[in-house]
Design a protein around this nucleic acid. Sequence first.
DNA 1: CATGAATGGATAGCGGCACTATCCGCTATC
DNA 2: GATAGCGGATAGTGCCGCTATCCATTCATG
Lengths: 213, 213
Amino acid sequence: MRIGELSRKTGVPVPTIKYYVREGLLPAGELTSRNQASYDETHERRLRLIRALLDVGGMKVAEIADVLAAVDDPERPLHKVLGAAADRMGGTADGHDDAEAAAARTTVTGLISRRGWRTHESNPAATDLARALAALTRLGHGAFAELLDTYADAAEQVARADLAYVDRRVAVEDIVEGVVIGTVLGEAVFSALRRLAHVDASARRYGAEGGTS
Amino acid sequence: MRIGELSRKTGVPVPTIKYYVREGLLPAGELTSRNQASYDETHERRLRLIRALLDVGGMKVAEIADVLAAVDDPERPLHKVLGAAADRMGGTADGHDDAEAAAARTTVTGLISRRGWRTHESNPAATDLARALAALTRLGHGAFAELLDTYADAAEQVARADLAYVDRRVAVEDIVEGVVIGTVLGEAVFSALRRLAHVDASARRYGAEGGTS
DNA sequence: CATGAATGGATAGCGGCACTATCCGCTATC
DNA sequence: GATAGCGGATAGTGCCGCTATCCATTCATG
C-alpha cells in the first residue's frame, strides 16, 4: 500500500501523514525505491489510533509521541506506559502554592491511604486531583471534598471493569496498546456518560428537558 | 479595589485581566473617573472561576464566555446553562460518517432508552459518546461497549452525588454557578481519580509500582 | 517509451489561541 | 509636581496542528 491509499482508507490527508511521520507518531513506510515506500495494516491501525487519541482523547501530538514510543518500546515496562498515558492531562503547574494547595494535597494523601491505593502521591494524577480540589476550595466549594469517596467508589468500579476487560483480551502483545486505548478513550466515554447522567438527573429534579445548548 | 490589587490577589497579570474583560469573560470595573475603575469581590471570584475553568477544566476562552453569559442571564434557563456547560468538549465533527459511526449511534440510542435517561440523542454528549465508541470499534475494541452499563452505573452514581451536593447548597443564586463548577471541575476530579484507581488496579495485578512517567 | 500523476523528502507558511508588549493620555498619591 | 499606576487600544508573540509548495524521482497508462 502506498501513501495515497493509506490516506484514502483513513481519511487523513497525505501531508498530515507525512507530518506524523516527521513527528515520530507513525513509523515511515518501508522504502522500495528512492521515493517509493509501502505501508501495511500496522500503519493503518496506528494512524487510526493516532486520530482517536487526538480527536476523541484530546491528547497533544507530543504527548501521543511519548505514549507511542513507550508502547513500541520492547522493554515494555507496563507501568511506565501507563504513566505516560496517564500523564496526559499535564498540569500547567502554575506557582499557586498557597494554603488551599497544601490542604488539597493533604486531602489527597489522606484519600490515597484511606483507600489503600498502591500509588505514590507524586503521581501526576494526584497532583491534578489536588489542583482541582484547591480550585474548588478557592471557589467556596471546599465541601465538594465530601463527595470524594463516592467519586472514588465509582472510579474503582470503572477501573475494575477496565482491568477485567483488558485481562480477557487476546494476546499479551495487544495488552499495552489496549490499556492506552482504554485509559484515554475510556475517559472520553465516561465523561460523555457523566454529562448524560447529569442532564437526566437535573431533568428529573427541575423538570426541564435536557437541552442541546 | 483597583486592577493591580485584583491582579495581586489572584495571580493573574494585569494585561490578562484586561484581555478577559475584552473577551467578555469578566465584567469591566465600575468607572470612577475617565481612567480609574474599581473592582470588588465579585470580580475576584469571577476571575478565580475563569482560571479554574481554564486551567483545571481545560475549557477554551470562547466556551467560558458562552457559559458565563448563560450564568449571568437573568432568565436563567437552567438546562440551557447546563447545555452550555456540558457542550464544552465540542467535537471537531469530522465527516467520518461510516458504518461504525452509525452503529455507535444506535448503541447510544439503545443505552439511553434502556436506562430511561431523559435526554435526547441530539445531546452533544450523546454525539461525543458515539464518536468515542466508533473510534473504539475502528480500533478493534468494539467489545468495549460491554462495559457501557458498568460505566453508566458509575456515571449515575456520580451524577446523583453531584445533584445532592448542589441541592443542599445555600441560595438559589449560587445554584447555577455551582452546577457549572461541579460539571466542569467534577470531571477533572473524576478523571484524576480514575487514573489513580487504574494505577492501583494494575499495580495489584502486575505488581509494579505506579510510576510518575 | 513518452507523459501525466503520484511519491518521498524538505522547507516555509498559515490560522487559531491565549496571552503579552507597547503606547497614549490621564489620574491618584506622595 | 514627580512618579507610579490606570483604562483603553493596537500590535505582536509563541505554540500547535497542520497545509502549501517545491524538487527530483518513479509509477502507471496509452
